[in-house]
Design a protein around this nucleic acid. Structure first.
Length: 407
RNA sequence: CGGGGACUGGCCUAACGGCAAGGCGCUUGGUUUGGGACCAAGAGAUUCGCGGUUCGAAUCCGCGGUCCCCGACCA
């Protein structure tokens, strides 16, 4: 990408009313633009990150057998009346009336729809296990959105639903997802803690959350300093001491990144999803559901990886691999084209502005590798390379850049 | 939904009830080029909306809107 032709317009100052670190850096870097409270647009740079995150998540879930679908955003109200959630959930569920009655709801989550679909296809125990998943938009009319991308009214979520004929299958799926999610977080350097949680409005028998400790978090968890067992506010022991080590639990703020549920038969019973088992008995299908918030994940990465100058992206989800600055002025274009041809995504800052402006933007945008061409470097046929996460730069041969970056 | 705060050119801010000011950004010309350069000349505003008080309102009062923060809530 050529900077002067891009839609990147960075800001020196913090927009009014912005408090959270993730929103401040994302808005200043022109990754996102706020449209309303809890409603954001992704600009080209932000969309590049979002797509990287989607790819990372998709790749990981494909490995555990998730088959991708695309479910609608607009749901017949009827379906939510059948599950009971049409009236159970308050104003967070957006209902749309076109005539005198509420006819539609906007997707807050997709249990009802996926169960309805599974009903057409699942007839026997041999149809399972089955896991369907998607990356889709969710609409929730949160009373108080907050923290930039941490709590939104409209957001992108990876959600998957599993169908089983027995508990063992459900347990296996539950564990597979936890493992898969941990893998994803590891690739972007996020430390997460498993927290047993309350299933809440989702219903079902068990649920666990993967949380990241962060001062930007809106959840409180209680953590044993020794065994690392963690509890949320609802599930913490009454005396606030670890039941195993008898130590006082430490209270920490945390961001909930992923949530997995054993739904059991809540939806299969209310919506009539049954199967014929090996013993020729008709039984309700056992279900699980698994969710990961993508926008929130991006926010969490920034909250845990930034400095006073800007974002520090992990390689896996950075919008570009390298930020190229040419202070001398004659070889930039050539180096840019070479790197692109080598399959390296480069943002080439070709603007006619002072060096300081370019360095400041490179730091703000947080692209993992900064490349600088100048009189000093090109007289020896070299280019300077500096990792965003590191202080030291070094000189390498211009022809080596592709291999050094790919290493 | 309870409590608190904010709203002024594209962005950030200033202005006792008395000519809406400055910085950033933008345009033009010149100078400069390793950490948000400099000089000069420009363009850009119904001060969130409606009503009220007043000779006079960005400023005071009322109603409404939007956004942010704390809390309640939260797959």
């Amino acid at each position: 990408m050529i900077y002067s032709k891009s839609f990147i317009r960075t800001l020196k100052e913090l927009p009014r009313g912005v408090n959270s670190v993730n929103q401040a850096l994302l808005e200043r870097g022109s990754y996102i633009s706020q449209v309303g409270s809890g409603i954001f647009a992704y600009l080209p740079l932000g969309l590049a990150v979002l797509r990287k995150v989607e790819g990372l998540v998709r790749g990981s879930l494909t490995q555990i057998g998730v088959q991708e679908v695309s479910l609608p955003l607009l749901h017949p109200a009827e379906l939510w009346k059948k599950s009971g959630r049409f009236s159970e959930i308050g104003r967070e569920l957006v209902k749309i009336s076109t005539e005198k009655t509420d006819e539609f709801v906007l997707a807050m989550t997709h249990e009802e729809v996926i169960t309805q679909i599974a009903k057409e296809k699942i007839t026997t125990f041999q149809d399972m296990p089955l896991i369907l998943g998607q990356i889709s938009r969710k609409i929730r009319n949160e009373l108080r959105p907050r923290g930039g991308l941490i709590r939104l009214k409209e957001f992108k979520m990876q959600d998957a639903y599993s169908f089983h004929s027995n508990e063992e299958q459900l347990d296996e799926s539950f564990e597979n997802f936890l493992k898969s999610y941990r893998q994803i977080f590891q690739k972007i350097n996020l430390d997460v803690i498993l927290v047993k949680a309350d299933p809440g409005i989702m219903g079902g028998s068990a649920s666990s959350e993967l949380m990241m400790i962060s001062s930007a978090g809106e959840d409180l968890i209680y953590l044993c300093p020794k065994c690392q067992r963690a509890y949320n506010a609802d599930s913490a022991p009454k005396d606030n001491t670890c039941p195993v080590d008898r130590l006082p639990l430490k209270e920490e703020k945390a961001i909930e990144l992923a949530h997995v549920f054993k739904l059991g038969t809540k939806y299969s019973e209310s919506l009539g999803l049954n199967f014929r088992d090996r013993d020729n008995q008709e039984k309700p299908v056992l279900m699980g559901c698994y969710g990961l918030g993508l926008d929130r994940l991006i926010a969490a990465v920034i909250e845990s990886s930034h400095d006073d100058k800007g974002i520090i992206w992990p390689e896996a989800i950075a919008p570009f691999k390298a930020y190229l600055i040419d202070l001398e002025g004659s070889f930039g274009q050539e180096v840019y084209e070479k790197l692109e041809a080598a399959g390296i995504e480069v943002l080439f800052d070709d603007r006619k502005v002072s060096a300081g402006v370019k360095f400041a933007d490179a730091d703000l945008l947080g692209i993992p590798n900064r490349l600088v061409l100048s009189d000093k470097t090109i007289k020896d046929g070299k280019i300077e390379i500096k990792k965003r996460a590191e202080k030291e730069s070094r000189l390498i041969g211009i022809d080596e850049v592709a291999s050094v970056i790919n290493n």
